[in-house]
């Protein structure tokens, strides 16, 4: 599969004495939901700021093979959608409709185009129950769906969702992944997290730590490094921990996070 995003030798520091990254090199494939996994303070949010042009990155990033050097703010807007986990950045308007319309208005979409696009997003993201609500009336789950809608409204190539799964129940997270797997055919998705909880839902994982990329691969490939991940401070989720240990003893031969399935596999 082709790469949508390539990062080459990216080094960054907020001040001269302390690099956040040193010669970062990784890529994100098209039509995937990818995880950038990193422990606390390793620079996940900083990385997203660099990738989306909020911080300068000095010609180290290409999208669809084209360098982001000398791109304008509008170019960045058209390429990327982004949601940061910090509440200060989350919502800019008071209603769901206004929130989704906002980026489209900024890009001079007509009223007709905006209304059509909002309707498409309502169907895609199952927003029927909340489309007419005010932002402060939304549940956490509805907030996440509205944020995703806003980030993809303008048909970007990639969206970055910084720590967006925080605070959702397990069932809600699975619903979000159902939606993301529909979206990824047109828009590649990158999520950052400190948690391995939902790692099996991702297509690819990039592990960030100690100022560099520690490894990349499929979720199961990354989970073979469970001891190293634990040393880096990641809490291994219970069912993954159980699966890996049972696999060590030859009781199971796969990583199983669904409890029902685990029961069926253990006691056939």
């Amino acid at each position: 599969m082709e790469n949508i995003l390539e990062v080459n030798n990216l080094t960054f520091a907020y001040n001269k004495d302390h690099n956040v990254f040193e010669n970062l090199q990784f890529s994100i494939k098209k039509e995937t939901v990818s995880l950038i996994l990193g422990s606390s303070s390793c620079g996940k949010t900083t990385l997203i700021r660099l990738l989306t042009g909020i911080l300068p990155s000095n010609n180290n990033i290409t999208v669809n093979g084209v360098s982001l050097n000398n791109k304008t703010v509008k170019d960045y807007m058209l390429l990327f959608g982004v949601v940061f986990s910090d509440d200060n950045y989350l919502f800019l308007t008071e209603t769901v409709i206004d929130e989704i319309a906002y980026p489209l208005e900024n890009l001079s979409y007509s009223k007709k185009e905006i209304n059509e696009r909002i309707q498409e997003l309502v169907n895609l993201l199952q927003l029927d129950d909340c489309i007419n609500k005010r932002i402060n009336e939304l549940s956490s789950f509805e907030q996440v769906k509205v944020l995703i809608a806003t980030s993809i409204a303008h048909h970007p190539k990639i969206i970055f969702l910084d720590n967006i799964l925080e605070g959702l129940t397990n069932s809600e997270v699975q619903k979000i992944f159902t939606i993301l797997n529909k979206i990824k055919k047109d828009i590649s998705i990158v999520i950052t997290s400190t948690s391995l909880d939902y790692i099996l839902n991702f297509d690819e994982v990039v592990v960030l730590g100690n100022k560099k990329i520690l490894t990349t691969g499929t979720p199961k490939e990354v989970l073979t490094m469970d001891n190293e991940l634990a040393k880096l401070g990641f809490a291994i989720p219970k069912m993954i921990d159980l699966s890996l240990k049972l696999a060590f003893y030859g009781v199971v031969d796969d990583v199983i996070t669904d409890v029902d399935r685990m029961v069926d596999v253990l006691w056939k």
Partner: peptide
């Protein structure tokens, strides 16, 4: 709002 994804040390 409990932060669910603290690393193991800080948790």
């Amino acid at each position: 709002r409990l932060m669910d994804n603290l690393d193991a040390y800080h948790q």
